[in-house]
Design a protein around this nucleic acid. Structure first.
Lengths: 132, 132
DNA sequence: AAGTAGTTTAGAACGATTTTAAAGTAAAAA
DNA sequence: TTTTTACTTTAAAATCGTTCTAAACTACTT
């Protein structure tokens, strides 16, 4: 399925700007990035667009499940092109994130989901620190 | 150990402002809060201080391990008085966090920590969604 | 071809957090 | 003690990521 079809399927009108972003993000390669990182990639690709459009697009893509947003207490939002359930190492000092494939973690026992809720995904974060 | 001793032990000068905050936070009760929540509690206790002091103090307390900061992509930093390793349910729609005791989760298999790093704590986040 | 609903844009606005630099305070030294 | 020193607090300004605004534009439908 090409990117135009992916956007249509997600209910998003495939505008010029969204296609530029889709061509960068939806290439099957897993990566973490911020809105600013993406803006730089857009510019390097010879295109340009308003930062508001980039934020709008990231929010739409995320809400449609085309990308994920990583849970992180950094001051800048971090997005992830890996939309499969997976986990992360986090170096809290640098903010660096490293993917952990889902099968690398075995969650043997999980607590009961609170009454009236359903499980919507599990994320394991292993905080790591550089050894001296 | 009283709060003055706790601050001293953490290498923090027990100033009037830090004692006010310690008296609110270090009472052994587990809770999640933002800087603004804390300011409201300070005000309700008949005290007051600059918001800059509150942020400075939260950062110092966190760096000393007296409190934790929760990994969350919300736009407001969330702190946690529960400093033991534990986990959370997160309702992504409301931002509500619910504690999960460490023994409620059994991490059977963990990936190898990257070369040159050491494990600095594991946090499991179970995202939950209200059922319709 | 015309209509309409959704999208992009630059720039203003926003809100959480940090910085500034001056005044204040706790601890250490004399 | 008193003096000195280093640390802390403060209000206000600044910063920075992100969102809003409202006007211009564009994709799709009729």
């Amino acid at each position: 399925m090409n990117n135009k079809e992916k956007l249509r399927k997600a209910g998003l009108r495939p505008t010029k700007q969204r296609m530029i972003i889709a061509d960068i993000l939806l290439d099957g390669i897993n990566r973490h990035f911020t809105a600013e990182n993406l803006q730089n990639e857009i510019n390097s690709s010879g295109n340009s667009m308003s930062i508001a459009t980039i934020y709008n697009c990231l929010k739409k893509f995320r809400n449609c499940g085309l990308i994920k947003q990583v849970e992180s207490s950094k001051d800048t939002a971090i997005f992830d092109t890996n939309i499969n359930q997976h986990h992360h190492f986090l170096d809290e000092e640098t903010g660096e994130l490293i993917d952990i494939e889902n099968q690398e973690v075995n969650l043997h026992k999980l607590p009961k989901i609170p009454q009236g809720y359903r499980n919507n995904g599990v994320e394991v974060l292993i905080k790591i620190k550089k050894q001296i």
